[in-house]
Amino acid sequence: MNWRGLFTREWRVMMRNRAGVLNPMAFMFLAVMLFAVGSPLQDESRAQYGGAVLWLIVLLTNMLSLDALFRRDYDNGVLEQMICSAQAPFLVVLMRVFVQWLGSGLLITLLAPLLCLFLGLPNSAIPTTMLALLCGTPALSLLGAVGAAITVGFSRGGILLGLLVLPLFLPVLVFGASAINTAIVGDGSSAQLFWLAFISMVALTIGPFATTQGLKISLQMQ
């Protein structure tokens, strides 16, 4: 199967199961609303927390959408066919994670202006926020896929997925929040953006391999 065939198939699978994309997005805005209601209304310091809160919500949203990444195909046996029959299961996994990123990381990036508005972040911080999300979210999808692959065999893998994956997300949170905070102050945040891109590159080198291995382990559990 060539690249395009792989992509169109994964894309169709995602489109058929729109709830897998829309539900995490709904969760994200719900979480933003809860934060806004919970925090003091007329507080100037809300913008200071904005970056951290935004990234925290992004991490959780991504984790929620990861839980469904392999589950359906695992349950109905398609995954086994995919991993066993493909010449390069690595590529299949990479494509699936890429499409998952389109539906979570990229979508969140496009919705970032709205998030900034709701969280009270200044307009000047929007470009940096979008760049940071663009550079950082691939790492979330790639590293998270490893956890999703290993926990897909458990009927209630959600909490374990969080336990395995959230510590690995910490660098993304640190640099992402730091990028937004420096942008709010008006400083350049290229260092943080480079770091986010670097983390995503590292995740790209180890993620698909580890995910494939994790899926193989989970398939033997069946």
Binding site: L143, V146, I150, P167, L168, P171, V202, I206, Q213, G214
Partner: peptide
């Protein structure tokens, strides 16, 4: 083993 390996690679970044 897989999780320990991924964690070990990530420790310097963390």
């Amino acid at each position: 083993a897989l999780v320990a390996m991924v964690g070990t690679i990530n420790i310097p970044i963390i």
